[in-house]
């Protein structure tokens, strides 16, 4: 039954969307989702490694602040379908935790720098600060 009707829901969807004034996804959606995912990662790691709790919590707070600012700029709440950040149970070994966080942070930094380069003027400063902040997180993880 799904095979024959595959095209119909798509058409219906298009019509519905037009009526619904839906906008295309904002190009900053992935960056906002990444900030939320990074926050969750740092919170889990902060719990797993008491020796690093203070430092990691400060960085988690920064990622949350980034996500909030990005949401403001996007002008919409997070899509309801966005996957809840569910980091796998963080390793308790501090060195492993740091290595994993650094990898995620490095990817995030690169993404923010690319977003800054591609952004219209009114978004450039915020994205620049986020890229720079992620670079300082890497430094703080050393």
């Amino acid at each position: 039954m799904a095979l024959g009707g595959a095209a119909v829901p798509l058409t219906g969807c298009d019509l519905f969307d037009r009526d619904d004034e839906s906008r295309p996804p904002d190009p900053l959606e992935p960056l906002a989702a990444e900030a939320t995912a990074l926050e969750a990662r740092y919170r889990a790691a902060a719990t797993a490694v008491p020796a690093l709790t203070e430092r990691l919590t400060a960085i988690a707070d920064a990622h949350r602040a980034h996500a909030e600012e990005l949401r403001k700029v996007i002008g919409r709440p997070a899509p309801s379908g966005s996957p809840a950040a569910s980091p796998s149970a963080a390793a308790a070994d501090p060195d492993t935790v740091r290595t994993e966080l650094r990898q995620a942070e490095q990817a995030g930094r690169d993404n923010a720098a690319k977003a800054c380069a591609a952004a219209p003027a009114e978004r450039a400063a915020l994205l620049g600060s986020i890229a720079a902040a992620r670079a300082t997180h890497l430094e703080a993880l050393k």
């Binding site: 203070e54 430092r55 400063a125 300082t136 430094e139």
Partner: peptide, 22 residues
Amino acid sequence: ALRATRWRRTAGVTPLTVPFPG
């Protein structure tokens, strides 16, 4: 921003980072 973070570390200031450098 990176140098500011390194100077905070040298000075023993926490947190080492600010949410929105600049």
